[in-house]
Design a protein around this nucleic acid. Structure first.
Lengths: 339, 339
DNA sequence: CTGAAAGCGCTAACAT
DNA sequence: ATGTTAGCGCTTTCAG
């Protein structure tokens, strides 16, 4: 049983291919009776249009590529879900791709996406190199950068003001009396990681606290990596004359690694150690401790992405804007007041 | 700047488009020097092949549609991630679609997927009606059913033996002395829900305990819905002469609703109430209580899916098998021994 | 309002 | 080893 084509419909109905096409698209006037005859034939043959052929003609696929580090990170799966809800209504489908924080994989993914002819690419980039993205744009694919601002002005960006929010979070720790604060870093490649670190440092410096590279714990935005390095760090810290009293985790996954490490070493949060997190962890309301954090507002993020999509779909040369979302400061019980 | 085509490469290199195509595909012998000249032209033009045109010819898209209830459910996002890892190596991309447990949406999604010409559909079905899936198969698209067995023999299935596992979980509660056990149901439509309920009932009956519809709490596989109905149930239960001592939650999301409801009513798990869960919740090792549950083995699930994919890619008429994955029984501290 | 025909970019016979 | 050519199924001028 072969799939019916527009030709089959044409043959069965007695009308030409073009008329069938017009009925299918409804973009040209067709006599009511003609339409009915054709629709009948379509039903009888269980005909559905072959999009691939259509895409070839129209140079559109109605597919959007979403490129993220890991769809299993709830932060990204939430974005994917919210995106898909809106895209479904707009008749787009979502192709989800995981970079695993690898530049090389990202590169291959982008090539595949060009190849597949997606209409949009929504990407949380690993690489700061905009070259490939420019090629993509030149190929007529709209690119929207999310989450990680690579600081170029030729693509719309939607994400957080990492510097500002990280600074605010650090200031909170300082207000509560903390002066020796460690920082868990993400991948150096990601701009979010740098900006968060800069915000952290700025808060320290402004409050006349010293910033030192010794207070950095490498986490690479991965729970496992963070867990291991934090464990080492905390063990060392227990022998410090003047131990760190607080840790700033710069993403949600690493915060989990932090909680696990502390738990395993019987370090109580916030009694023995205070923590804050850039990015909310799941089940915040069930978990002990309830982590004080910056909760990224995904709804408004997705809303802004759609603003860009609708604009670009309408006019690919539309002006490019950088949209920073307003995040929430979620007050938990993971920070002890000291001194 | 227009995207280069195979014709441009042909013109620039001086070779015919077929030779270019052969270089692109590497499936026919081409002289080494010719190849180099052509590759050079390809690079100079930043040429990448237009897959849409290729797909039209080859009738393949290298896209696989994954149809699940909600990609934001960690259970599904884990599957998606693991799938994508393997698919990336096989040069497939994953189109993720969310049914939101709606039959109607599922139907529209499937039509879109046919339309898009995906090579495979991997679906955790909402509807038990296999009609549409058969149409899809007749259109030459391979279908693999996961998670929810709709009990038809014409499609490969990969998932859990819900009846058996649910029975085992219930028996554990009984062994620990529980005799009044409530059950949180999923959507009636989903077969997993029914099978789990049947397994639950079978365990009760075999142990000469009475099963009654009053012990059912409707959750529809949704956290929010479960939360509300459980709250009502628990409030009522507090006035019972012979209250329920345990609750069986039939999926991971509803277990979260259960924990939240109990927490809000200051009902302590397991002291005041014992619970078990079909499906693991996230952060199991951080959360209190550590819920005793059936943990679905996603790795082996995905492995079996790939077995099917590889087989079907090779020969679409390959024999169809039902594969049940071996799950783990995760012993937590959410069940108290009573009497 | 309808039909004929060109062609989107590519692959795969079929020639040479 | 390379070139020629016929489509894949559809949209969209252009004619009528």
């Amino acid at each position: 049983m072969k799939k019916a084509t527009i030709k089959d419909v044409s043959d069965l109905s007695g009308y030409s291919i073009s008329t069938v096409s017009r009925v299918l698209n409804g973009n040209y006037p067709v006599k009511k009776q003609t339409k009915e005859t054709i629709l009948e034939a379509i039903n009888k043959l269980h005909f559905t249009r072959n999009s691939v052929a259509r895409n070839l003609r129209t140079n559109k696929t109605n597919i959007i590529g979403l490129v993220v580090a890991d769809i299993n990170n709830p932060y990204y799966s939430k974005i994917a879900k919210a995106l898909d809800d809106g895209l479904f209504k707009r008749n787009y489908s979502l192709l989800v791709c995981n970079t695993d924080e690898s530049e090389q994989k990202e590169c291959k993914i982008l090539e595949t996406l060009i190849d597949k002819g997606v209409d949009f690419i929504i990407i949380s980039p690993v690489s700061k190199n905009a070259e490939l993205l420019r090629t993509i744009k030149n190929n007529g694919i709209n690119v929207i950068i999310i989450d990680r601002n690579i600081g170029v002005s030729d693509f719309p960006f939607v994400g957080s003001d990492d510097f500002k929010e990280a600074k605010k979070l650090t200031e909170y720790l300082i207000t509560r009396g903390h002066s020796k604060i460690a920082f868990i870093t993400g991948t150096q490649k990601a701009t979010t990681s740098q900006e968060r670190l800069f915000g952290f440092r700025a808060a320290l410096v402004e409050n006349h606290l010293t910033f030192s590279n010794e207070s950095l714990i490498e986490g690479l935005y991965k729970e496992e990596m963070a867990y291991e390095n934090i464990t080492k760090f905390l063990k060392r810290n227990q022998h410090n004359i003047q131990p760190y009293t607080a840790i700033f985790s710069s993403n949600n996954l690493m915060t989990l690694g932090l909680i696990k490490a502390a738990k395993e070493l019987s370090i109580s949060i916030p009694n023995d150690l205070s923590i804050v997190s850039f990015g909310q962890i799941e089940l915040q309301d069930i978990i002990q401790p309830n982590v004080t954090c910056i909760k990224q507002n995904i709804d408004s993020m997705v809303e802004l992405i759609f603003k860009n999509i609708d604009q670009l779909a309408d006019d690919p040369t539309a002006t490019i804007s950088n949209d920073f979302i307003a995040n929430s400061f979620l007050l938990g019980n993971s920070v002890k007041k000291i001194k």
